[in-house]
Design a protein around this nucleic acid. Structure first.
Lengths: 243, 243
DNA sequence: CGTACGCTTGAGCCCCCTCAAAAACGGTGG
DNA sequence: CCACCGTTTTTGAGGGGGCTCAAGCGTACG
């Protein structure tokens, strides 16, 4: 279920781009931390491995003592409402931070979509640490801004696109993460269920399937299996027409 | 249209609550900056007043040189898509930061909903300043986290609630801001148009009107004028049933 | 080999969108 | 003060996208 490991080669990456880059052009997709900074951060953290998918990492409503940095795997953050409906608020990929709290308790529950490895930071210690390491705090700040941006983007998608388009955008987003997308064959391995996707793009699992049909009949994707799809990315982009 | 003013009494407030409060209980709704910190920040900023509503503050797509802190008034951040649809991504109230950028350009356009007053920070200088003032940078970090939280909340609302409920939640959110809500009479003065509301909660202006009808017929609100509504807050909360 | 879970398909209905037009409101100038 | 005009808000009618309920199918796993 859950394993501890103290000695791993530490390689801490934060997935975010500086919104105000010194010079424009090719944006790095990750914040670069020096080896020393990585080591300092790693000293604060515990590495935890969640083997089985579906494991709860931060249960919604529970007292929030930790911030998490995803090292490997995929995690979903979902919020369950009183009447039982579930909204998946974000999927996290390697380099993402999660464990959002409000008034000291977790706002969402975070669950392993695949088996995954995380760095777990005691929030009190981390806060102190960041105050004495302004450059690293700056990286965390940039990451937070990055996450505002992606959440806003999802908001736009939910507010103004029909279900097939939302799905197209979702598939394109997934294709941005190596390990689940093979650029050579253009095949995407979808790590999550139809239900996860549905709760993320604000629809039902049935409608996700139907939207897959729509995309396939338009020749924008080709289904090889339920969880494996070949993408025509240019066509998908033209169809969704985001930005 | 736009007026400069150098000498105002500076009173800088940031609207956000620390997600990991030292002790639980009554949460402050604003970050407290010392008089010295306020003065230091104010030295970086220029105060700008936008008299006419609808004024563009940050046009979408324009090169992003500034970060803004709203002092007075209401601002909307909207994103316009290629096919012309508009999504209002957030409304800003006094104490909110805006001017979100990506790769050096503004992601959304920010426009004055009412006449308003802002502090304008040159982003380069502010970044340098924050690196040498870790406590203030921490406040900005907390604010960013706060904004992630509110954007996620809106995402949940858009994904899982019907239009009348979305409107109910919106009205309740508005009622949290003094100056537009009178606790004595429970009357809310809505500063924005039906179109703004519609583009924010992901529907059409007509549906906003119809949702108003629904809420009124259920006895949850009482319309005094198009922009003035008496709220039965407890009943609205029960109806919307968020969290 | 059976069961559970995830995925797909079908049928019917309802919420909400779109188009269209009337009504209310606010401001401006005579 | 009033007539005029643009904007905002409201109401109406009709159609469609997506939801719900229900059942069939495929697959992994004990």
């Amino acid at each position: 279920m859950k394993q501890m490991a103290q000695k791993e080669q530490t390689h801490i990456r934060i997935r975010a781009a500086n919104p105000w880059p010194p010079e424009h052009g090719q944006e790095p997709t990750h914040i670069v931390l020096s080896a020393a900074e990585q080591a300092e951060l790693a000293r604060l953290a515990e590495v935890i491995v969640f083997e089985t998918e579906g494991s709860q990492i931060t249960p919604q409503g529970q007292s929030a003592g930790f911030l998490y940095l995803l090292a490997d795997g995929v995690v979903r953050a979902s919020h369950t409402l009183n009447h039982g409906d579930r909204q998946v608020v974000a999927f996290f990929w390697p380099g993402d931070l999660f464990g959002l709290a409000q008034a000291g308790t977790y706002v969402n529950s975070a669950e392993a979509v695949t088996s995954c490895r995380v760095y777990r930071f005691p929030i009190r210690k981390l806060e102190q640490f960041l105050l004495t390491h302004p450059k690293i705090q700056h990286s965390f700040f940039i990451k937070a801004i990055h996450d505002i941006r992606s959440t806003q983007r999802q908001l736009i998608v939910m507010g103004r696109f029909d279900v097939p388009r939302r799905l197209a955008i979702f598939l394109l987003d997934c294709s941005g993460h190596e390990l689940y997308f093979d650029p050579a064959t253009q095949i995407l391995s979808i790590p999550m269920t139809r239900y996860d996707i549905a709760d993320y793009i604000g629809t039902s699992a049935e409608s996700v399937t139907r939207a897959m049909n729509t995309l396939e009949s338009k020749g924008l994707i080709q289904r090889l299996a339920a969880r494996a799809v070949e993408l025509k990315r240019a066509d998908l982009k033209a169809f969704a027409d985001v930005e």
